[in-house]
Nucleic acid binder design. Structure first.
Lengths: 191, 191, 191, 191
DNA sequence: CATGAATGAGACTTCATTCAT
DNA sequence: CATGAATGAAGTCTCATTCAT
């Protein structure tokens, strides 16, 4: 009731997409799940494709905002660790949204160069942290796009693991281990 | 002509799947691309679903074989590096096959528990290497499934990056960097 | 602003109907073109069908009025020629209206017996002229409905030709030729 | 049974189009009338549009052939009269086909420049007759496209009249009158 | 083994019309 | 009078699959 019909449609679409896949979900079933008429969906979104993209960008920016809600830290390692935990917590609170990101990232139908750009844009604040840490020789001088790709990808994989097996998420060995791999992986080689 | 019609169908399916997505590719278009009649496809595969699964398992085992074709090495690091390079070379030689693995791994329609099992089975020989290295304290004592997940995922991500931007694949900084992240990420924390 | 919304709707409908066809034009697109809301259209017309019929009868009577605005002439040939030119001028000044008449006249959806009646009613004054001329043996004693049909139809065809190829309308050979066919066609056979 | 499914579809489409209009006839209703499945229609025609165009050109050429099946005559007037009667007979034997021609000729959706070209192409043999007759001063030196337009249009109008009121078709005054208007209309002016 | 016409359920989308504001 | 979100029936077209040849 507090929700607009447009939001109801987006919610239902998300739920169905992650369980059945995007293509396997009909617009009729989305409308039904949202308790609106078929036509209503197309009143708010010109096409199924645009509904998917709208969902995608809204989720992407939601993740970006969630990550930045963390206090400023002194040490770079602590700062990055904060981002990391913030992002993981968001994923555990919004498992379907994360699964959707994972799904769409590998669907040729929706895979565009936007993808890379959107990732960089959303994670821009991370880029700065990393550059700075590399400059301070806290991180190894790896190519920046390689690093970003790794961060993005390791995050999605770990988040997905913790969603599929929620008991792991509460064990320190997994929680610390996941971040250790990230930070250690980017650290300078031990001489 | 040296190819059987069945193989022609598999080849055409792979090509179309990675460019348009599995669901967006019709059996009719596969048959057309393979220069066979619609009915012929269903002589060789009982359904589209079975065609997809057949393609999947054949590619998965092809990757497994490709990785094991490497000489035995003394040092664990060298041994793992060999596996890594073998796998990357296979991906660069078979970009469509890698893209297919990536696509199917995140499609809810085909996502089953098999997936995890198949991954472990294919990478079984790696597990042994890692366990041994952990025992020798060359690698950190991280949970084994976390490690496996990381290896599998980092491989797919790097292979995909090198396929999308082939020029990166030839630069030492990217080649070495990708592996450095892997090995370093699993290494024990510096004092 | 000098135009009422109702008139704006009629104008927009006419424009869209002749370019895309009646059925292919949605009420929504008419409203948009007229810069009014969807609902507004249905305040002024109970249905799309009634909008079409309203447009039809208003155009039909407009043509009737246009034709009668001509001075009384002595000779029957001059009188008919006047009607003819008046009607052609109206068509050239209102090309879309003529195209609409042409379109609707052959659409089974709107084709009713009204059509014949309306044509006769509009052209009633012409009937008298023809009857008289036949009586004076200036015209051949052809069946009256055949004659009327011919007049109506030849007019629409010539008007349409001149609208499609406006340069022809200014050439004497076409202007005179078109009327010559009409008058000559109805004349008594030579010797 | 002697009919192929493709022909059954064309026949049903014609029947429904002339009674309800092209747009008002759904592909589903065509298939039903033809006793085939919906998909069958789209197996033979890539779209509804192409079905319409296929029907159009087949009818147009059928009319062309019907007209040419007449013996060679000495006098131009007799020759043209033969064409005229042949064409009218075809129309009376195929009333739906004529109605379809009439309908499509005025539908903005299908109205293309092809139209004019097709008409000229189909009626090419008539053009020659007319040119010759003009040269012999049996016909007035009117612009050729005006003449052709008139012939085409007068034919459709008369044929339609005779179809709508079949009793008229058997009366000499109408039969002769219709042709008299044609020939007389094109004749030189009485000095 | 191979073919391709035929099937019919179901997908996406459109649209005339209504109604609460 | 005017608005535009909402409706749901209906339209065009797709597609995995079958089967007679």
């Amino acid at each position: 009731m507090g929700y607009s019909k447009k939001q109801q449609i987006l919610d239902s679409a998300l739920r169905l997409f992650v369980h059945q896949g995007i293509q396997a979900t009909s617009t009729a079933s989305i409308a039904k799940e949202a308790n609106v008429a078929t036509g209503t969906l197309f009143h708010h979104f010109p096409s199924k494709q645009s509904l998917v993209l709208c969902l995608y960008s809204s989720i992407k920016s939601e993740l970006g905002e969630a990550m930045q809600q963390c206090p400023h830290q002194q040490a770079p390692r602590q700062q990055v660790r904060h981002y990391w935990q913030q992002a993981l917590q968001w994923a555990q609170a919004n498992p379907e949204k994360l699964r959707f990101l994972l799904h769409i990232a590998h669907d040729p139908q929706f895979y565009t160069s936007q993808h890379q750009e959107l990732m960089v844009a959303t994670m821009n604040f991370l880029v700065e942290q990393i550059k700075q840490a590399q400059h301070q020789q806290l991180l190894a001088p790896l190519p920046l796009d390689l690093v970003l790709n790794f961060c993005h990808n390791h995050y999605l994989a770990c988040a997905n693991l913790f969603i599929e097996q929620p008991d792991l998420a509460h064990q320190r060995s997994y929680q610390d281990g996941a971040f250790q791999i990230l930070w250690q992986g980017l650290s300078p080689v031990k001489s």
